[in-house]
Design a protein around this nucleic acid. Structure first.
Length: 236
DNA sequence: TTCCAGGCAATAC
DNA sequence: GTATTGCATGGA
């Protein structure tokens, strides 16, 4: 057993216990069942790991993964909303759209010139290789796309194609460093394998864990002053 | 006003 | 292989 394996497992249980099921990946068109009390549109789907259910939902997740690069999710939602208004959350529509159209839609999420190219690059590969839930891309194929790096590739695999590939983001690195599970900045893949080797290879678990880490980091790790308030420090 | 968000590629050593 | 830089909007 690896040194940090028990800590990683315990961390998951502590986070789940504190925050509950996160219901990632958010989908803009997912609607909660209407009840007497609620008829709002809910983007999250706690404890339901069956998404994406359609090809367009799969595509929406992939596009969201690219749009959220170094960008807040609120801004990404605005871009997805704009794309959806023009019914562009569809690979064939994206390929046949002018770049200027996409640029206007995704302006709220920043880097819109770059991200338009990235989305086009991804969509081209998506269609050419006929990627689907039954025919997912390999990590290598995704990394070969200009605009898809480690985190984006893993997010697409994990949340889009339900492949158990752990996502490491800036938040996760911050948490591990503060808790001294890592004592220095390590390469992406080394941190990724630390999680993957400590856990069951289940996509549901990987999705939930990563979402919980983001939730936790938003509470304690957006401001350096609150790092030391992280309750995990005492519990692990 | 400044800082930062669910990164990436190009470039320079 | 590691360090630096440009890319861009919107909310706190």
């Amino acid at each position: 057993m690896k040194l940090n394996e028990p800590k990683i497992k315990k961390m998951y249980n502590l986070l789940l216990n504190k925050y509950g099921y996160q219901g990632w990946w958010p989908l803009i068109n997912y609607k909660c069942k209407k009840t007497l009390k609620t008829k709002f549109i809910e983007k999250y789907h706690p404890k339901d790991y069956s998404f994406p259910k359609t090809k367009n939902e799969l595509f929406e997740i992939c596009i969201g993964c690219i749009l959220t690069q170094n960008t807040s999710w609120l801004n990404v939602e605005k871009s997805l909303y704009n794309l959806n208004q023009l019914k562009l959350i569809n690979p064939n529509k994206i390929i046949n759209s002018h770049s200027s159209t996409i640029q206007k839609c995704i302006k709220p999420s920043g880097y819109f010139n770059l991200k338009t190219k990235y989305i086009k690059n991804f969509t081209k590969a998506f269609l050419e290789n006929k990627w689907s839930n039954k025919n997912p891309p390999s990590r290598i194929e995704l990394l070969d796309i200009k605009g898809v790096g480690n985190e984006t590739a893993d997010s697409i695999l994990l949340y889009g194609f339900k492949v158990p590939s752990f996502v490491i983001d800036a938040y996760t690195k911050r948490i591990l460093l503060n808790l001294k599970i890592l004592n220095k900045e390590e390469p992406y893949n080394k941190i990724k394998y630390l999680f993957e080797n400590s856990l069951e290879q289940k996509y549901e678990l990987f999705q939930e864990f990563h979402a919980l880490l983001v939730k936790h980091a938003k509470m304690y790790y957006t401001n350096k002053k609150t790092y030391k308030q992280d309750f995990l420090y005492e519990e692990l």
